[in-house]
Write a protein that binds this DNA or RNA. Structure first.
Lengths: 341, 341
DNA sequence: CTGTTAGCGCCTTCAG
DNA sequence: CTGAAGGCGCTAACAG
């Protein structure tokens, strides 16, 4: 691994001169410049960013921490982040917490050690311990998708309350009255917001009695499966499900199949997050789609602004609207259907 | 951002003593140790890994470059890599080339600048330019999934030739005789290997005339769509498709639907890579599944061995077998079916 | 236009 | 058991 000193010696100049050539700064005679460039080529010299960062106290690197790297929603966010960051000459370190606050804390520690310039975080829970580390160090932070309790922090998310509200309205319009909510963890803000939207729509429709209709679980296939089983045991049985993310939806559909129930004939179905279009053979779910790529992009732009001391004073909240697709998974409520005889 | 000097001053000791406490090295009296620990806690001191790496000339960081981060096959590999690396105290930088050799070259450059200790690479093409940079610097390299032409390099991959061979045998057993191959880019080794397995199975079955049956394209939904369209124009039309990855499979299924063809009645279908089980409502494809997580894990273990100068002399090739699932997408050939009247 | 000095934060080496 | 000096590779600030 040749260093700037090796190049300098070979070209018969000082290290400073080499540095100037490499960074195109200051005045250099054409003659020495080409001698230096020649030496660089001969040695295959590649500058050491570490040393540079040590001087500049900045690494041109940001990190993105998500809770589940297998979820296409988050990989799409990741693409938005990566594309936007690299446009501006920043590298991204991706981390995956598996929804564990402890892992999150540990990653944040390591990332601070690595001197990242800023962090994009999908928090594993709404508690605020892990980010206090960052705030002590005044490392800019932008929250993605989920919020934290307590003081306001820059954040980019999709309007979950509205999304849930509209999905429920759609079901109400189809004649459904018993609409179960299969949500995420109670201490994750997106789950709480989606419950709030569901609740509002039902209340407005005069359906205040929600006993047995609300279920909390994990944002996973197993979570969806388990909540659906619970929901199917209630009596009278719901005629429609609202699921709070794509994994929950898949788990719930499996549970329905195990019970021999058809969608939408026996159970209508609406969900947050579509399945990845790439992998979809048969588009099926009525869904509130979150603009994942755009969320990643906006969050990165905001963070990079903060790095340069720009952007609005105080915490900035960017809330993007969901898009809706209406497909086969939602149909009329059984008792709202024309009789079949 | 407090430094080791700040802690030293506050504890009334030298920087060296703080360093020894932080790294648990050398002898320290219990008294000074607790004084130092107290100062660390008060200042929220977190060591600067950059400075450390500059001294040690190693960063405890490896990188993984894949060609398509939206493909679940690669994200599963990524999980295997991340889990294994962090077990051993290494961080991972993930990069995405979008199948572009230029992006690949650029990433490798940046990663060398960042002083990564080693690289896991899914090459965008079989040419060898981009990795020569690494070899100059003697940075350990392990290839994943795909190989390069020329000199042998440590690599971990799945047996593509065998996988394709077995899938075609399955189709032959079902009575198919015209089996089209929809493969990836001709200059990607996995695509070539899968073609080779297809070819061998057909040759052994005495079906040497392959005119019009072999198609090369990109590893994408569009690629699959386009190859399937081409394949459907040939006459006589094939009765079965072998697709070289999951995206090609999805694109091909869509093309079939557009032509009003049913699977498997009008066209049988086998593929490499399953769709992600997480996202699957209706398991459908007969597939050769590559052990993605295990590939990531094995590759990382090999790379970490190399970092410590361990492992077999010469290039080490780890070839894992595919697993097979037989599902609804493949059925008897039309003319092999019992007549229906 | 080019070179020298000094220091980013850390740790190895060698004295106390 | 603890500390002082020096250097990892790079560049800003100041000479020349």
């Amino acid at each position: 691994m040749s260093t700037i000193a090796d190049v300098a010696k070979r070209a018969g100049v000082s290290k400073m001169t080499v540095s100037r050539v490499v960074n195109n700064s200051g005045y250099i005679s054409q003659d020495t410049r080409s001698r230096v460039e020649e030496a660089i080529a001969e040695l295959g010299y590649i500058p050491n960013t570490l040393a540079r960062s040590l001087r500049f106290k900045q690494t041109q690197t940001i990190a993105l921490i998500v809770t589940d790297i297998t979820n296409p929603f988050f990989t799409t966010i990741a693409r938005g982040v990566e594309d936007t960051a690299s446009e501006q000459g920043f590298s991204v370190i991706f981390c995956n917490t598996d929804e564990s606050p402890e892992e999150e804390q540990e990653y944040i520690r390591v990332l601070i050690q690595k001197q990242i310039d800023g962090l994009l975080l999908v928090p594993a829970c709404s508690r605020t311990e892990s980010v206090s580390l960052l705030q002590d160090k005044t490392i800019p932070l932008v929250l993605l998708d989920r919020q934290l309790t307590g003081q306001p922090i820059d954040s980019v998310r999709c309007d979950s309350e509205l999304g849930a509200y509209c999905l429920v309205r759609h079901l109400l319009d189809l004649g459904h009255r018993r609409i179960a909510m299969l949500s995420g963890p109670a201490d994750v803000t997106t789950a709480a917001d989606r419950v709030a939207g569901w609740r509002r729509a039902l209340r407005e429709a005069g359906l205040g009695a929600l006993a047995g209709l609300l279920h909390y679980g994990t944002y996973s296939v197993d979570g969806g499966h388990e909540m659906a089983r619970r929901a199917l045991e209630t009596s009278p049985r719901p005629t429609a499900f609202l699921t709070a993310n794509n994994f929950i939806a898949v788990g719930a559909v499996r549970a329905l199949a195990e019970h021999g129930l058809r969608v939408p004939e026996d159970m209508s179905f609406v969900t947050f997050d579509d399945l990845p279009p790439m992998m979809m053979i048969d588009p099926f779910f009525t869904a509130a789609m979150q603009p994942a790529y755009e969320m990643g992009r906006q969050a990165t732009l905001l963070l990079l602004d903060r790095l340069e001391g720009r952007g609005p004073a105080g915490a900035h909240e960017i809330i993007l609207p969901p898009e809706f697709v209406f497909r086969r998974s939602s149909g009329p409520a059984p008792d709202a259907r024309p009789s079949e005889g």
